[in-house]
C-alpha cells in the first residue's frame, strides 16, 4: 500500500481506492482513473506543482499533490 503521491516515478501500480472529493472522484473516473486501473507517475512539476500521470495506456493527466495523497495504490515491487 502506498499513495499515488508517494509512488516512485515511472513505477506502475494499480489504483486501490480514491478518497478524493466527490466531484473530483467522478471526473477522475471519467478520465479513466478509477479503482483497478494502472497508473504511472511520469514527472512532478517544480514549485510543488502537480503530478503528470499516465492512466492505463490511453490518457495522461495532471493532478495536484494534495489530491494524489488521497489515492491509494498497490505498491508492487518494481520488476
Amino acid at each position: 500500500m502506498s499513495t499515488l503521491l508517494a509512488l516512485p516515478l515511472h513505477q506502475s501500480a494499480t489504483v486501490l481506492d480514491l478518497a478524493t472529493p466527490v466531484d473530483l472522484t467522478r471526473r477522475l473516473a471519467a478520465m479513466g482513473l478509477r479503482r483497478g486501473c494502472q497508473v504511472t507517475v511520469l514527472r512532478r512539476a517544480s514549485w510543488r506543482g502537480p503530478l503528470q500521470i499516465r492512466v492505463d495506456s490511453h490518457t495522461e493527466l495532471m493532478l495536484r499533490r494534495i489530491h494524489a495523497a488521497f489515492i491509494t495504490v498497490s505498491a508492487e515491487v518494481a520488476a
Binding site: 512539476a45 517544480s46 514549485w47 510543488r48 506543482g49 502537480p50 503528470q52 495532471m62 495536484r64
Partner: peptide, 19 residues
C-alpha cells in the same frame, strides 16, 4: 497550453489561481 498549465500550477496556486 495544457503543458503550460502543468508547469505553472505550482506557482499559480500560491497567488490563489491555478494552472
Amino acid at each position: 497550453f495544457a503543458r503550460a498549465a502543468f508547469m505553472m500550477d505550482g506557482l499559480m496556486s500560491r497567488v490563489g489561481l491555478d494552472g
